[in-house]
Design a protein around this nucleic acid. Structure first.
Lengths: 241, 241
DNA sequence: CGAGCGCTTGACCGGCGTCAACACCCGTGG
DNA sequence: CCACGGGTGTTGACGCCGGTCAAGCGCTCG
């Protein structure tokens, strides 16, 4: 029922990336490349900024490149047969998006920033040239495909299973900040509903129940940021025991 | 002369495949290989048969190879945090399974034959050797990854969304025989429940309703085989209108 | 022919969807 | 400074879909 907002104005170009000295390189696609490989990159790798809610790309759009997230969060949205839209994954720091462009030249999802997000965009030509001339891209690329597929399966198995309480608890666990453990970044109730296959009212109720029980604590006025007070209890809620 | 270290009762070896003349080659991983490439394959590619309900491989098992289905159907099962199991995908003719073995050396799911199934198993060593020495495997491999990821997303968006009626209808549409359009191969109600996130009673009820409405016709006594009589009506049921 | 398994059908009830009202935050303009 | 309005989150009331439990049916196979 939600229509994809057409907001592309909210992005800007931050420069071209110096991949060799990038602090994310170890987790990104270029982990194994040599200096020689880098010397053969002839198209600029752009460093981009997108404001929250703005669109990175749309389904079936001709692809400009593959992205790696440096900071922030991106949702992948898919429109179902009956016109409703469903969030099939949320990607965070270090994850790749738009890999399908390598296979088909266009994207399979709408990609929309959930938070202010910075990422770099690697032109398809660069990837194709590198995979022709070097073997060092093959393995990291395969690992990114694998990571994406695993995440898709996790999403299905964990977030679309069990009671509303279980799902919300699982989402909170998944969305823990990888650095500051205990901090959880959530989104609008509508987005959470589109992830968990629940109505926003139900999400709100379950979340509030967890707060009332002292499992979570709300950290901001818009109730997007939470802190886990009782991790054990949250895990029990997630597993339904 | 292949050693099969783990004995599985319900399977047997049918010989080694002659990939060059295989009728599935165009849809399989080896689509683009040259005669020269084939000459460099030094491990046997086994042709295997598995009876319905028998296990191809288990989660976390050390991987022997990547599979391509020649005939039949295989379910990929994942055990959730709370101990229940969920079918994350069903693979059919021409599809690849166990790709994750290329990235990690072990499998991410339990794979169980839903019907009597024949498939060929390509040893990891063959894939690795080919990707070192030839560029012709790269593209088909990426397409298989892409296909798997797309299917995972479809699964989530179509089969885990909407009312029980919509889900069952969608599953019937997905499980149409690619050759004999109109024929639908289904499974036990329990398996269907594990796919659709419904109880078997609910699946049974919705299926029976579709038969009573004249949308489907049951073709066998075990009610696994159906024929679509009113495709339009089934599509309407799937989209919930 | 009987046992056992899987499928079907019925009765009942609880969780979640639906609709609606309200609270709260924020930006805008008077 | 407050008044106003729109957007988002929260809470309540109510009804329905689908889960649960249980009984019965129809295969298939010993």
């Amino acid at each position: 029922m939600t229509t994809i907002p057409i907001v592309r104005v909210e992005s800007h170009w931050r420069g071209t990336s110096d991949c060799l000295s990038c602090s994310f390189r170890s987790v990104a696609l270029f982990a194994d490349l040599t200096e020689e490989d880098f010397a053969n990159i002839h198209a600029p790798i752009d460093d981009l900024f997108y404001r929250a809610q703005s669109t990175l790309f749309r389904e079936d759009e001709r692809a400009l490149g593959v992205f790696t997230i440096r900071n922030g969060m991106v949702k992948l949205v898919r429109t179902t047969g009956d016109g409703r839209s469903r969030i099939v994954r949320v990607l965070r720091q270090g994850e790749a998006l738009g890999l399908e462009a390598l296979a088909t030249g266009s994207y399979d999802h709408h990609a929309i920033a959930l938070l202010d997000t910075t990422l770099c965009r690697i032109p398809l030509s660069v990837i194709h040239a590198l995979s022709q001339n070097s073997k060092n891209l093959h393995k990291p690329l395969m690992q990114k495909w694998h990571q994406a597929l695993r995440q898709a399966d996790d999403w299905l198995a964990d977030l679309n299973f069990g009671s509303a309480r279980q799902r919300v608890a699982n989402l909170a666990l998944q969305m823990r900040d990888p650095l500051q453990t205990g901090q959880v970044q959530l989104f609008s109730r509508e987005d959470m509903g589109a992830i968990l296959n629940l109505q926003q009212e139900t999400v709100s109720r379950e979340l509030r129940t967890l707060v009332r029980e002292g499992v979570l604590r709300q950290c901001d006025s818009q109730s997007r940021q939470f802190e886990i007070l009782l991790l054990e209890a949250l895990q029990r809620a997630a597993s339904g025991t």
